[in-house]
């Protein structure tokens, strides 16, 4: 058992050594009807307010990870990422009596290739494979919501500071394009959609609305996160085929 573990660790380490390190900046938009409903109810419940409180829509964050060539002839690459994302309703409108949102830490494994690679092998060489690619992935995220009103942190039942971590599984799909290189850094533009079945933030209705009357929160619903990424991949040694003089974009 011990030797198997050691073997796995060695394979992982050696493959990581061969992999390209990745850093990524992210910006996104959330579509989560159940969370929107909480903010809609908040606005309904404050008929005297001069302006409405914005819901949570935008997300910003970064990710770190590695890019590993899996099978060059089919342009298959694996990418492992750990994301941190921050979302708050004050990202849209800074002046708000209520500030609510959540931190998200997410681990994700992505597999990418070029559609053409499904039918024939590609010749393009280099650490990043085809220039344009599609990708599929799956991951698990941990959400830590927060809420404060008039600058004071919200307390929920039993006088506990509102801090309720919940976990969430997701699937994602997307497409990207290796845009250019600056020295050893390849800059990639990417767009993805992640599907979170039954997205929920624990006790969020209580924290935002200030109470726990049932019927005010909609049951968990499918949620989606659209994201735009700018990814920087550090190319350790070899160049990409499209980065060589007159390589051109053939994929």
């Amino acid at each position: 058992m011990k030797s198997i573990r050691l073997l796995c660790a060695t394979i992982l380490l050696s493959s990581l050594c061969a992999a390209q390190p990745v850093a990524q900046l992210e910006g996104g938009y959330w579509h989560f009807p159940s969370i929107d409903h909480i903010f809609r109810t908040y606005n309904l419940s404050h008929p005297w307010a001069d302006s409405e409180v914005a819901p949570i829509s935008m997300s910003s964050g970064f990710a770190l990870g590695w890019n590993q060539k899996v099978y060059a002839p089919r342009g298959i690459h694996a990418i492992g990422l750990v994301h941190y994302r921050y979302q708050s309703n004050t990202l849209q409108r800074s002046s708000s009596p209520i500030r609510a949102g959540f931190h998200q830490v997410c681990t994700e494994l992505l597999i990418r290739t070029h559609p053409r690679c499904f039918v024939k092998e590609v010749q393009q060489t280099g650490p990043l494979g085809t220039r344009w690619y599609i990708q599929l992935g799956a991951g698990y995220s941990w959400n830590l919501p927060f809420a404060s009103k008039y600058g004071e942190k919200v307390y929920v039942a039993n006088d506990q500071r509102y801090r309720a971590i919940s976990g969430q599984f997701h699937l994602s799909g997307g497409t990207g394009w290796h845009a250019f290189t600056i020295g050893p850094l390849a800059v990639t533009i990417e767009s993805t959609v992640s599907w979170y079945p039954k997205f929920t933030l624990e006790s969020f209705p209580t924290a935002v609305l200030g109470h726990n009357q049932p019927g005010l929160s909609e049951t968990n619903r499918n949620s989606f996160l659209w994201q735009g990424h700018i990814r920087f991949t550090y190319l350790k040694k070899s160049k990409n085929w499209w980065d060589t003089p007159r390589g051109g974009d053939k994929s």
């Binding site: 938009y29 929107d36 829509s57 735009g228």
Partner: peptide, 23 residues
């Protein structure tokens, strides 16, 4: 290219945002 990217990144969420129904 960075200029285009940044403008796109800033405008896109705003566009989506307008689709959210608050009422």
């Amino acid at each position: 290219q960075s200029g285009w990217l940044t403008t796109g990144a800033c405008l896109l969420p705003g566009l989506f945002q307008s689709c959210k129904k608050l009422e």
